[in-house]
Design a binder for these strands. Structure first.
Length: 292
DNA sequence: CATATTTGACCTCA
DNA sequence: TGAGGTCAAATATG
């Protein structure tokens, strides 16, 4: 039996969570109205607001209810609760997707485990947000190679929301690269379709050229749009940097549309695959300007 | 040297 | 008791 005072506190507690949830929704609505997701400055401000609200909501949610006795719990009991919390989150999974680029989703992840799964050819890898401790971000994801095609698809399951709001403008980070390390035993080296060795290089070149062309076309259209708005555009095709990596970074930093982002995903994946397969000569000799 | 990954041990649950 | 998820010491990497 709880007292009237405790009941009032519980009510206030629930109200606080409801209000914070409402604030999160309103922020998202406001963001959609104000900038349509195209203005980086507004985007950043909204990210910050959203992060603050989400974090507040989570903190309030985690604070013990007035009539609970968190402090008196034993370590064992606490660990059990944490485990149950994780189990609950497990069934509260947000999203599952199949992607050839499981490492590129705009966030930084840190691997914390790997397990072989019964009757599955490929192990399952467990990641949590790099900022899980610093910012109490509870986001985790599981990645498992789904097939042996080229490119291989990966099943990615996300759990919990990011409260760190640490979106990586340039997703080609050192970390993300390691996650898709084809030398890792957790990921089967992708095999090309059954084609004669002599045709292989042609296939690789065609894939790379196709990806580069797509991305750069998208990039140029972005430039022309931006230049009308007075933004400082990148160089023209002749002035492209010789470093493909730098170009990809620049392209990524200007990309805002989902489809273009996925084009960069494709490109990066191919570059990584090519690097892994010792045909760096291709990367050194190809200049994006050649394909325009 | 700081940070990330690997991997065997450990835990919980069905 | 075994499967799946997490921890944490050892190891690798930049």
């Amino acid at each position: 039996m709880i007292s009237t005072r405790e009941a009032t506190q519980a009510l206030n507690y629930n109200l606080a969570i409801k209000e914070l949830e409402k604030s999160c929704e309103l922020t998202e609505m406001l963001r959609a109205h104000v900038d349509n997701g195209t203005d980086l400055q507004f985007g950043h401000i909204f990210e910050e607001i959203s992060r603050t609200l989400t974090m507040s909501r989570d903190i309030v949610s985690k604070v013990a209810m007035p009539h609970s006795s968190e402090g008196a719990k034993t370590n064992k009991r606490k660990r059990d609760d944490e485990f149950k919390d994780r189990q609950r989150r497990k069934y509260n999974s947000k999203m599952m997707k199949l992607t050839p680029t499981p490492h590129q989703d705009g966030f930084q992840w840190r691997k914390y485990g790997e397990k072989t799964i019964l009757n599955k050819k490929h192990p399952r890898c467990y990641f949590r947000c790099t900022y899980s401790q610093d910012r109490k971000c509870m986001a985790t994801k599981q990645v498992q190679q789904y097939n042996d095609e080229y490119p291989p698809l990966f099943e990615v399951i996300y759990f919990d929301e990011h409260t760190c709001s640490h979106v990586i403008p340039n997703s080609k980070s050192t970390n993300s690269k390691k996650i898709l390390d084809f030398s890792s035993k957790s990921i089967t080296k992708p095999s090309l379709p059954t084609i004669a060795t002599g045709c292989r290089r042609e296939y690789e070149e065609a894939t790379l050229v196709s990806c580069l062309t797509d991305v750069i076309k998208g990039y140029n259209s972005e430039i022309s749009e931006n230049s009308n708005e007075g933004h400082k555009a990148h160089n023209t095709s002749n002035e492209f940097s010789v470093s493909i990596d730098d170009d990809i970074s620049s392209i990524e930093s200007t990309l805002l549309r989902e489809d273009e982002f996925s084009a960069v995903d494709d490109l990066t994946r191919d570059l990584e695959w090519l690097e892994q397969n010792d045909i760096k000569f291709l990367l050194e000799t190809l200049s994006p300007g050649n394909f325009l």
